[in-house]
């Protein structure tokens, strides 16, 4: 829906022309049979595996471990640090700003470059290997995207639905959205901006680094932003001066 259609309605009390339909994403894991026991193998395979593998190992952990504080780093950084025992590289990999990459191709390049640069600088890292059974096993995410019964046309309805949807739904609209949209935005910010005309709120909804929160903490943060907006609007409505 175009912004022009809704510009005149820009307010926390506005009604969207196009409702927000919450979806959810369920994941089944597929094995590729590929495994790495050294950094050289890890780097080679990271270049070759399908993008759904890169997605799996940089995103799926969020759903598996979303409740942990502090949250463990993504699969590749965790394996390099905790299994291979190359903590300095693990730290560099964990530090890759996943949220800064709007597509998996550039994220893949960043991972490979970080590993290869480190291997060049640290020749002893090439001596490390893990025993059978502890290798890095490359998996793929098969994503099943499905509608939920939650639909919102106003900010109030949106906030109410956000309280109830599953964390998988939240994950879909925040994390999957960024890769789908190809820019640092999420489905919530797009709808709030384009349908309700709430540009400032839309910007605030994008600001928190979603990788630095547990999913429940992210939900609470977003909800408090929405509730603040609603409260301000209610107060203004009650006292129009």
């Amino acid at each position: 829906m175009s912004e022009a259609l809704n510009a005149h309605t820009a307010s926390p009390l506005a009604v969207a022309v196009e409702p927000f339909r919450f979806k959810t994403s369920l994941i089944l894991q597929e094995a590729t049979g590929l495994r790495a026991s050294t950094l050289a193998q890890l780097s080679t395979l990271l270049r070759e595996v399908p993008e759904s593998c890169i997605y799996h190992h940089t995103h799926y952990f969020l759903l598996q471990h979303h409740y942990l504080t502090p949250e463990p780093s993504h699969d590749i950084a965790y394996w390099v640090s905790e299994v291979l025992g190359e903590q300095p590289l693990g730290e560099l990999l964990a530090g890759i700003d996943t949220v800064g990459y709007a597509d998996l191709k550039t994220l893949r390049e960043a991972l490979v470059t970080t590993i290869d640069d480190y291997r060049q600088r640290t020749p002893t890292a090439g001596l490390r290997f893990v025993s059978e059974g502890s290798e890095f096993f490359f998996l793929k995410s098969i994503r099943i995207i499905m509608p939920t019964p939650y639909v919102a046309t106003t900010l109030k309805e949106f906030a109410r639905a956000l309280e109830h949807v599953s964390i998988r739904s939240l994950y879909f609209h925040i994390f999957d959205a960024r890769l789908r949209l190809g820019r640092p935005a999420n489905d919530f910010s797009v709808w709030l901006g384009e349908q309700l005309g709430l540009k400032e709120l839309a910007q605030r909804v994008v600001t928190p680094d979603p990788y630095a929160y547990t999913l429940e903490a992210l939900r609470s943060t977003l909800l408090s932003m929405l509730q603040h907006e609603l409260k301000t609007a209610d107060e203004a409505h009650a006292d129009p001066r």
Binding site: L26, L28, P50, S52, K140, S141, I142, R143, I144, I145, M146, P147
Partner: peptide
């Protein structure tokens, strides 16, 4: 999900 996807080879399935 396995039953739903049986026979499919897609990585992303939208219902």
């Amino acid at each position: 999900l396995l039953f739903l996807l049986a026979g499919s080879s897609e990585d992303v399935v939208s219902l």
